[in-house]
Amino acid sequence: MRDDVVPVKSAFTYTPGCVAALEASLSAERLGTYLRKSKGNREQAIRLHIWNTAVSAAFYGPLQCLEITLRNAMHARLSEAYGLTWYDDPSGILDHGTHTRIAGAREDLKRDGYPDDPPHVVAALPFGFWIMLLGAGGRMTAGGKANYEMTIWRKAGFRVFRHSRVTRKAAHKPLNYLRTLRNRIAHHEPIIDRHLAADYASIQQVMAWMAPDIGLWMDHHSRVAELLAFSPDSPDLTF
């Protein structure tokens, strides 16, 4: 066989025993989501589960690109405004929830034996943390309410989205919605009820606001459009 020829797998045969084993392994509750979509057809439900898994995998790369671009840009701009260890909050701008998440990230680093330094702290903070910094700001530890519009957005955040004139609220909205997509994928949950084409368009839009060249690179290597065009009923779909 030539090295450049990829063998095509034959369609998988779903015997009654295989379907029963898959149902037991996936759990009746989990498969129930797909059964409802498939009107009780177990083989179609399993194919829909495969499609969900394949599309979730396809979204992993673009979501990773979005998250890393956002966190590194936010860290760079906040470092310019408040210093490299801005998360120590010497200016007293961060709300209680933000402090809690930073403390949790540092505890995780300590437990796992990693250095407590800016590269590791930044990498340990989750996607939702950075999106939270684009919110309005919540209750301060010492009382009162943080004003992220003034202390984060106008000082640093707007520069993250330098290729647009987007407002803080407009930047926050699609990212917060994409956060739920990322979390569902990370927890192996169904995403079939979401408007996935719109989700991908949101990723493309936010990347264009932040780093259009990286967005084009991301889109070139993405399989999302290909998978969304693939019928969930296809016997040839793999993950």
Rank of each mutant, 00 (worst) to 15 (best):
S10F: 12
A11P: 08
F12M: 14
F12V: 00
T13Q: 08
T15M: 11
C18H: 08
V19W: 09
A20F: 12
S25E: 10
L26K: 05
L26I: 15
E29T: 15
R30E: 12
L31Q: 01
L31K: 09
Y34W: 02
L35C: 05
K37G: 12
K37D: 08
S38P: 10
K39Q: 12
K39G: 03
Q44H: 10
H49K: 03
I50N: 05
N52Y: 03
A54S: 15
F59N: 01
F59Y: 13
G61D: 02
P62S: 04
E67V: 02
E67W: 08
L70I: 02
A73P: 01
A73Q: 10
M74T: 03
R77L: 05
L78H: 08
S79M: 09
E80W: 13
E80R: 03
Y82P: 03
T85Y: 15
W86P: 04
S91C: 05
I93L: 05
H96K: 07
G97M: 11
T98M: 09
H99Y: 14
T100H: 04
T100D: 04
I102C: 06
A105E: 00
L109K: 01
L109M: 04
K110S: 15
Y114G: 09
Y114W: 04
D116S: 09
D117N: 13
D117L: 12
P118H: 14
P118I: 11
H120M: 13
H120G: 01
V122G: 03
V122Y: 06
A123I: 02
A124R: 05
L125R: 01
G128I: 03
G128T: 12
F129M: 06
F129P: 08
L134N: 02
G137E: 07
G143H: 11
A146F: 11
Y148R: 07
Y148V: 00
E149W: 08
T151Q: 07
T151C: 14
W153N: 01
K155N: 15
